[in-house]
Design a protein around this nucleic acid. Structure first.
Length: 696
RNA sequence: GCGCCCGUAGCUCAGCUGGAUAGAGCAGCGGACUUCUAAUCCGCAGGUCGCAGGUUCGAAUCCUGCCGGGCGCGCCA
């Protein structure tokens, strides 16, 4: 038998009663929800008012009819009708404690500290087999050319919560890290790496390259002649180096990629309007045109050029290795085997365009929602236009003309729309995805709408395939502009994490000092340097992640160290502290009452004190909270729940002593509540990608 | 010009897809440590939900129009 959540149970029972009252088989929304105010009960059913209109009866009469028809006597106190026809539901304490009592203790093997949700389900069953979906989750997706910065943070940690939550719910999640390893930026990296490598073979160190970069940077504002004089020797050497095709490339590090990338990028800027040329694969090319050169270089696939291939692989390996370090540090689930970047689809792109051309030329095809996709060449580019059923373009440019999804540029190169379509086909037909989730910034929204339309029109996504573009707001500085360093540069992720950890360490250190200076000394754990570093590391990372997750993901959020590291309010430290307090009680109870068995069969969960009842009700609502996160992909609702849970526990903690409980039965009951709370916090935080701390 | 997102307490944010007297946390004021970690808890104060209409038993929520802010709109991703 599947255990329903409290909310599901009440909904089901009221739905049945409503159908009886309504007298027909039209399903009626039972409108059961948690009450906003405790004086209106724990849950309420608001369906009477709406139904009254339909039945042309008085709302309160309808409410009475529902009350008479519904069978909830085993769960709730006698129902009350209030106001215009609200039905207030107050749960019986024994039904609450019974429900919690059915949550089995953690099994023999104990809890896996890294993935507690895999070993302690808190009595929550996975979805039924028939509801299980294969979910393809596309998140993080950094561009391998550059260091990861705060912009990548949100996609990575929000996506990670989806991965964990959907997996916990019982779905079959396949992570796809769609890294940018084949675009112009990657080409620039390869070219930079090529330059560095060939110079290195002539005995030049990175320092020489770095100095040359500085020279170029300072020449950006100079006159054409001056810049030409600077560039000409580089171009001449370049020509000499081109003959070197030794494919052996040593492993490189990210800094070297960045150096090469910056060099090529600066070179391109400085070469603006100088006309300085260097040899390319198909004859001379202007240095200023390098971006086009590298794109072409990649379009031809680097095939037949082992050196280029080796450079690409070295660059890719360095980037992915570097990203993996950050993923490990952040504690996200992504692994190297989840990487399926743009390059993976490269060989499939011509067929995508061919198939679009074949299927959509002329009349085109119509998607289930009526959108018509038509293939047409326009200004030399291969395009797909999307039209409404009435023939109007669904997307328009500022001049009001139809806006195409371009799948092949006039120079023959493919674009990210092409890659995304190829990935869509792959994910549906080869990975058998039924729900495809893309976690990216909202600027790409138009692109996603267009390529979803085309994918549906082509039938590459079935009508039942869910395609979801999940967006998130930007991270702002205190000045309300996108977060930057004081100098205006991007903040690298590594630096951000460093600062979080060192700030957390300072706070811990401060607290320890304060405790030592007090006469009796607060009862806080004493840490040595190594332990404190580790606790600070966990708090720091947790704070960054939690701050990111606790707001509605679509709104921009203002980044504030003080707020995310605060020990009050809806923050990671508050939650972690609540957990640590509970664990502390547990350790002491084990010492003082070694015989106490909170999960023994004869233990009844007693809900005499209001704070005990409130805590129990909150615990009973964990399952329904997790349901909503799976449907709506809203981590902040889980954060809000955990904050309420922690706060309810704190109140209980202040009011009901566990170790000094009046008797053994009460103590066992309270210990049980403590442990359930700890498990709920641990499970919830774990789904947010945040590991708990036993002592802090 | 078109499209999307946002506007709620001094600040940072919730508000469960139309429900009851709009809620938290900071900051402010006042309380609580002989008591399981005071990184806590309790109380007070704080609001024209951007503005104006509309839909209805009922609107912060849905519709329309303004005002203010952000983003996007053909060969970058």
């Amino acid at each position: 038998m599947t255990t329903r959540s409290l909310l599901q149970e009440l909904r089901a029972r009221f739905a049945e009663a409503l159908n009886a009252v309504a007298g027909d088989s039209t399903p009626v929304d039972p409108q059961v929800r948690a009450s906003g105010d405790p004086k209106f009960g724990d849950y309420q059913c608001n369906a009477a008012m709406a139904l009254a209109g339909r039945l042309k009866r008085k709302p309160r009469d309808v409410a009475q009819a529902i009350v008479d028809a519904v069978e909830v006597a085993d769960l709730a106190e006698p129902l009350e009708i209030a106001g215009p026809g609200f039905i207030n539901i107050r749960l019986k304490p024994e039904s609450l404690s019974g429900r919690l009592g059915r949550i089995a203790p953690v099994g023999e093997g104990g809890v896996n500290p890294n993935r507690p949700e895999l070993t302690d389900r808190f009595g929550i069953p996975p979805v039924a087999d028939g509801d299980r979906l294969r979910v393809i989750l596309d998140y993080s997706s950094p561009n391998v050319a550059k260091q990861m910065h705060v912009g990548h943070l949100r996609s990575t940690i929000i996506g990670d919560v989806f991965a964990r939550s959907l997996e916990f719910a019982g779905h079959d999640v396949i992570r796809q890290n769609h890294v940018g390893d084949w675009g112009t930026a990657m080409g620039m990296v390869i070219l930079g790496l090529w330059y560095r490598e060939t110079r290195r073979r002539r005995g030049e160190t990175d320092d020489v390259l770095r100095r040359r970069l500085v020279d170029l940077q300072s020449a950006r504002e100079s006159g054409v002649d001056e810049r030409r004089a600077l560039l000409q020797p580089i171009a001449t050497d370049w020509a000499a180096d081109l003959s070197d095709a030794n494919a052996a490339v040593e492993p490189v590090r990210l800094e070297q990629l960045e150096l090469g990338y910056q060099f090529v990028q600066t070179l391109t800027t400085v070469a603006e309007k100088t006309g300085v040329q260097a040899p390319g694969p198909d004859g001379d090319i202007e240095l200023a045109d390098i971006p086009r050169l590298v794109t072409q270089m990649l379009q031809t696939g680097g095939e037949g050029n082992e050196f280029e291939r080796a450079l690409w692989e070295a660059a890719r390996a360095a980037s992915i290795g570097y990203c993996q370090e950050l993923y490990d540090r952040l504690g996200v689930l992504l692994r190297p085997e989840d990487v399926r970047g743009e390059s993976f689809y490269h060989a499939r792109l011509p067929r995508v365009v061919d198939d679009l051309r074949t299927a959509l030329t002329g009349e085109g095809r119509t998607a289930p929602d009526g959108a018509k996709a038509v293939f047409r060449e326009d200004q030399g580019a291969a395009c797909v236009f999307v039209y409404e059923p009435d023939g109007k373009p669904r997307y328009a440019n500022p001049d009001g003309e139809a806006l195409p999804l371009i799948v092949q540029k006039s120079d023959g190169a493919f674009l990210y729309a092409t890659t995304d379509l190829a990935a869509l086909r792959y994910r549906v037909s080869e990975l058998h995805g039924q729900r495809l989730i893309y976690v990216t910034d909202p600027r790409q929204q138009l692109h996603f709408k267009m390529f979803f339309d085309v994918g549906r029109a082509m039938g590459w996504a079935a009508p039942t395939t869910r395609l979801e573009h999940v967006t998130f707001g930007s991270v702002l500085g205190e000045n309300r502009r996108p977060l930057k360093t004081r100098e205006g540069g991007v903040i690298t992720l590594a630096r951000l994490l460093d600062e979080a950890e060192s700030r957390a360490f300072e706070l811990l250190h401060e607290r320890q000092r304060a405790a030592e200076s007090e006469e009796e000394g607060a009862a806080i754990p004493r840490f040595d340097e190594v332990e404190m570093r580790e606790v600070a590391r966990r708090i720091g990372i947790a704070s960054i992640k939690y701050a990111d997750l606790c707001r509605d993901r679509n709104s921009d959020y203002v980044f504030s160290w003080d707020k995310m590291l605060a020990f009050q309010g809806n923050t990671a430290p508050y939650m972690l502290y609540a957990y640590a307090r509970i664990r502390s009680i547990y350790r002491r109870a084990a010492d003082e009452f070694p015989d106490a068995q909170p999960y023994a069969a004869d233990v009844t969960i007693q809900l005499d004190h209001p704070t005990e009842r409130a805590l129990a009700l909150r615990l009973a609502r964990l399952p329904e909270t997790l349901e909503s996160i799976v449907d709506e992909l809203t981590p902040h609702t889980l954060c809000a729940y955990l904050f309420d849970l922690a706060a309810d526990f704190m109140r209980f903690y202040e009011a009901c002593s566990v170790l000094k409980a009046p008797d053994a039965a009460s103590r066992a009951s309270r210990l049980r509540l403590c442990d359930l709370t700890a498990r709920g916090l641990r499970l919830g935080l774990s789904l947010l990608g945040i590991p708990v701390i036993e002592r802090m």
